[in-house]
Amino acid sequence: MMWAGVLVACAACYALKLAGLSLPARLLEDARVQRTIPLVPVALLAALIATNTFSTGHHLVLDVRAAAIGVAVVAVLLRAPFLVVVVSAAATAALLRLL
């Protein structure tokens, strides 16, 4: 099942890339499409941050991940590189669990 999902997702992402190069430009140059699509990653990434930080399964939880994302926010504000943001968050969670 995992393989099927992975491969279908890969095919879908490739199809979207190819569609941009292949479809008549006027279809995707529609003002509604142009203004809506950039909003999708903003909303989805924010929803992913919220759900991956504040939930386990179907339960809302507040645990060390909240502190970790707080550290990540500081790292982003300091314009730290991607890997530093991720590692600082992981290290925060790991250290707090040791305490």
């Binding site: 990653p41 903003v42 990434l45 924010a46 992913l48 941050i49 991956n52 930080t53 060390v64 991940r65 970790a68 994302i69 990540a72 926010v73 790292a75 982003v76 991607f82 943001v85 991720v86 590692v87 600082s88 968050a89 992981a90 290290a91 925060t92 969670a93 790991a94 250290l95 669990r97």
Partner: peptide, 16 residues
Amino acid sequence: VFGLDAAPPAAFLALL
């Protein structure tokens, strides 16, 4: 143990 469950939200934040 390595806090890897806290890594995805941080990665999404860096992308956002």
